[in-house]
Design a protein around this nucleic acid. Structure first.
Length: 329
DNA sequence: AAGCTCATCAACCGCAGCCGT
DNA sequence: GACGGCTGCGGTTGATGAGCT
């Protein structure tokens, strides 16, 4: 049996693509069309695996890609779509023409996730209303996640000292080692918050992690757990909305904000995709499953007709009793 | 100026789902 | 239904350049 590895790299090139390789790939796809990625490299004369060719084409060489920085409007879309869909980057990308899932994923991980976390943390503390615009205005701030480098250093030290680890799973009732590492990585903005509150600099963050990490983890895991439970989030910090009152309030605030933006002489076309009718949206909404949530968000005009038809079809198949309930916008 | 740290992004990897046999 | 191949997706990594000390 055994799965065929598409990535058997015998004699195949890896790493950065050269201009010559790009040219060969573009010419081949222009002549023969996309698809058949497995056989494409051989037919085109490229020493790459099919996956690599596909990725290069989709993320970089495709003609319909939008170049340049992600705009504030796109930022807002990404934040909202991420709230609805979680880390389903291809779904999010499908609503942002010219942007790839990889691009959006990178953008989220490097820009928006920490903004979202900071925003939500402050919301948690102050119970302020949701203001999406505050998420996308906080740019280029070096504070935020603990870098992978610091995490690596931390983890390396952990591995070296593993036998002495006070959190060894055989010695305490704490969660298994890997779980703790994952949680800290996912919620590593908390590290910065911890540091700032204690007036420590960046160097002290890693020192804390390495020397006092047990106390630190207990403290932070308690905070994270409390925060995520209160916000209805999963362990990756993705909001899963189960409370209809909460989402109604959220939608109403976004709608009100968009009205204000329009009044403020903002280009209405830019915000057209963000407009929605809360009552209609709520009428569609059920929040039990991911499918329901997707359908619920068809109230957004960001969902095109084809998507809508598909979701209506899925909805009706899933529960025939609801077929008369569905309205086509 | 040099070395270090960090953010960014292109690319890779592994897995899951789909489809044909 | 089982199997195997292909494709697409999401998580992760590594290279690189910018900023900082």
């Amino acid at each position: 049996m055994g799965r065929s590895t598409c990535c058997e790299k015998v004699g195949l090139k890896r790493g950065k693509w050269t201009a010559e390789e790009d040219e060969i790939l573009v010419k081949y796809i222009q002549a023969n069309g996309e698809g058949s990625w497995k056989s494409l490299p051989k037919n085109a004369g490229l020493l790459r695996c099919g996956k690599s060719c596909r990725l290069r084409w989709i993320n970089y060489l495709r003609g319909d890609l939008k170049r340049g920085n992600i705009t504030d409007e796109e930022d807002e879309m990404i934040v909202m779509l991420h709230k609805a869909f979680g880390n389903r980057w291809s779904t999010i990308a499908s609503h942002l023409p010219g942007r790839t899932d990889n691009e959006i994923k990178n953008h989220w991980n490097s820009h928006l996730s920490r903004q979202s976390y900071r925003f939500l943390t402050s919301k948690h503390k102050a119970k302020t209303s949701i203001d999406v615009s505050t998420l996308v205005d906080q740019k280029k701030q070096r504070i935020g996640r603990v870098s992978r480098r610091v995490a690596k250093k931390y983890n390396k030290t952990r591995v070296l000292n593993n036998n002495k680890s006070p959190l060894s799973t055989t010695e305490t009732s704490s969660p298994p080692l890997m779980v703790i590492e994952k949680q800290v990585d996912d919620c590593s903005n908390v590290v910065t918050k911890y540091s700032k509150e204690n007036e420590a600099d960046d160097d002290v963050i890693s020192d804390d992690l390495e020397s006092n990490w047990l106390m630190f983890l207990n403290d932070e895991l308690f905070n994270i757990d409390y925060f995520l439970q209160d916000e209805g989030m999963d362990s990756s910090g993705v909001s899963r909305i189960h409370d209809e009152d909460l989402i109604e309030q959220w939608l109403a605030e976004i709608e009100a904000e968009n009205i204000n933006k329009t009044k403020g002489n903002v280009d209405e076309m830019n915000y057209e995709s963000l407009s929605l009718e809360s009552s209609k949206t709520m009428e569609y909404c059920h929040y039990e499953t991911e499918l329901d949530m997707e359908f619920g968000f068809t109230g957004f005009s960001m969902c095109d007709e084809e998507d809508h038809d598909m979701l209506v079809s899925l909805w009706e198949d899933d529960d025939p009793s609801l077929s008369g309930y569905v309205k086509v916008p």
